[in-house]
Nucleic acid binder design. Sequence first.
DNA 1: GACAATTTGTCCGTATGTATT
DNA 2: CAATACATACGGACAAATTGT
Lengths: 75, 75
Amino acid sequence: MPMTPLYEQIANDIRAKIASGEWPVGHQLPSHTELQTQYKASTTAVRNALLLLGPRGEGLVDGQQGKGRYVVRKP
Amino acid sequence: MPMTPLYEQIANDIRAKIASGEWPVGHQLPSHTELQTQYKASTTAVRNALLLLGPRGEGLVDGQQGKGRYVVRKP
DNA sequence: GACAATTTGTCCGTATGTATT
DNA sequence: CAATACATACGGACAAATTGT
């Protein structure tokens, strides 16, 4: 039975928020540390989720150093 | 200028090997530890590269616990 | 069947660099 | 200058599955 890993759950949750319109294009995502506390996850789990959703993956979100991560596209 | 991160270089190199046919479909990839020594990289760098190429990313390779990682598709 | 070795899968913490505020 | 935030990188720990002895 394939259990879903934590980083996959986080990615699915964020993807769902973007798809539903709760986080529209241009919306700023919570900071890395906030995501950690929200999902009670480590840096790696959050980072892996964002790596899959990021520019080198699905391309739904993108981040800029010092500013934050933003939704760039709907799934 | 955005220099390419290490995990991206590793992913590009593996992707190129698959595309060129050097690693055909069904071929078993080097083990995680071998990839680390080959690229002089850490677990995280190798893991991030394989996360992008894996089933939840591009879907070029897939792994089975205790056996190894195999090429499943050409780019 | 039991055991050890190998390998992948997941997860955690931390450090450094860079850019913005 | 200082605080915040992302990007990359390193290392280590444990579980699960496979293989060989």
